[in-house]
């Protein structure tokens, strides 16, 4: 029988919704038992949130001052030990920068192959994943491997709902932890806006905004809609928006209900990041922009005329 061990992602205060998506992925493995490993400091509430996810059979809670920050060098030996101690057949983490950093290190410690960006589960040993920036979907088979590591493409799975009540088991591990990597600082735009990766609505701006000043129009429309803000690589590279807002192959892969692309041409690398959005709206003055090939609703015209009108009409409705 399969036993999937999922590494919880959290920021020290809250469980990241990416974890609940990993649970949905794991639940598609027939007959799988699902455990969540919560490694943190002062993380009892996070462990409780993990235990409440439907489908989870147990939470392994490793509380330690060493786990105050998510350093792969520190977390990997602990996750590998948990996988061995609990006879995991699959060790999954989200395909976020947290999981991408950590999981290959875990895989190497366990001498296990890794499948990156799992987008579909065919069986306990057969999966599908995107390659070439999502231009090709690859089916893979790992039959014969007793243990595999995987990162889960979170945009491909809905979050498992709360409502479960798994046991939380406090675990202490006697694993030597290296001190050769140390956390220094984290700087990010803390904002009251919805989180880009989990928001139901996202408004994104591209190069056509033309300046950091003009990019405020993106924020204004987002705020009017209660949406998160995103940006194309071109807008980030031009300094209009901070890097953590980048949507696309090398930024965030998202699946909101509504994605509004303002002045974004729609390069393949950008479309990779939004192909699972339920509705894509494109507003661009170039009628030949490739984004119109994939947009559900398109409007050709000048952003600086359209945006004020759009906001006014939305305010009236």
């Amino acid at each position: 029988m399969s036993h999937v061990l999922i590494v919880a992602e959290h920021d020290g205060r809250h469980l990241n919704p990416a974890t609940a998506k990993c649970v949905s992925c794991a639940a598609q493995i027939p007959g799988a038992r699902i455990s969540i490993a919560v490694l943190g400091q002062g993380s009892a509430a996070i462990a409780a949130a993990a235990a409440a996810l439907t489908g989870v059979t147990g939470v392994l809670h490793v509380e330690s001052a060493a786990n105050a920050h998510p350093l792969a060098t520190v977390l990997a030996p602990q996750v590998a030990q948990l996988a061995r101690d609990h006879a995991a057949t699959h060790v999954f983490g989200p395909s976020t920068t947290f999981g991408k950093d950590l999981m290959p290190r875990v895989a190497a410690l366990l001498d296990a192959p890794q499948l990156s960006d799992i987008m579909a589960v065919e069986s306990a040993q057969q999966f599908r994943r995107p390659i070439y920036a999502g231009n090709i979907v690859l089916s893979v088979d790992v039959s014969g491997e007793p243990l595999i590591v995987g990162t889960v493409r979170t945009a491909s799975f809905d979050a498992a709902p709360a409502g479960g009540s798994a046991c939380v088991e406090a675990v202490s591990l006697a694993v030597p932890l290296p001190a050769y990597a140390r956390f220094v600082s984290l700087s990010g735009a803390t904002s009251d806006r919805p989180d880009l990766q989990t928001a139901r609505r996202v408004v994104s701006g591209g190069r056509a905004l033309g300046s950091e000043e003009n990019f405020k129009l993106v924020y204004e429309l987002a705020d009017a809609l209660g949406a998160a803000v995103g940006a194309s690589r071109a807008a980030v590279d031009s300094g209009y928006a901070p890097n953590e807002l980048q949507v696309g192959q090398t930024g965030k892969i998202i699946a909101p209900d509504l994605y509004i692309a303002l002045g974004i041409s729609g390069a393949i690398q950008h479309m990779t990041g939004i192909k699972d959005a339920k509705t894509i709206v494109a507003i661009n003055k170039d009628a030949d922009a490739p984004i119109f090939e994939s947009a559900d609703l398109g409007l050709v015209g000048d952003l600086f005329t359209i945006l004020p009108e759009l906001r006014a009409q939305l305010a009236r409705s």
């Binding site: 790992v142 192909k275 894509i280």
Partner: peptide
């Protein structure tokens, strides 16, 4: 250890309405 069994084109999005 990881065998590639099949390669597929991703499901394409349909072109929608231009308003």
């Amino acid at each position: 250890r990881v065998r590639s069994t099949r390669y597929d084109a991703p499901a394409a999005r349909q072109k929608g309405l231009v308003l």
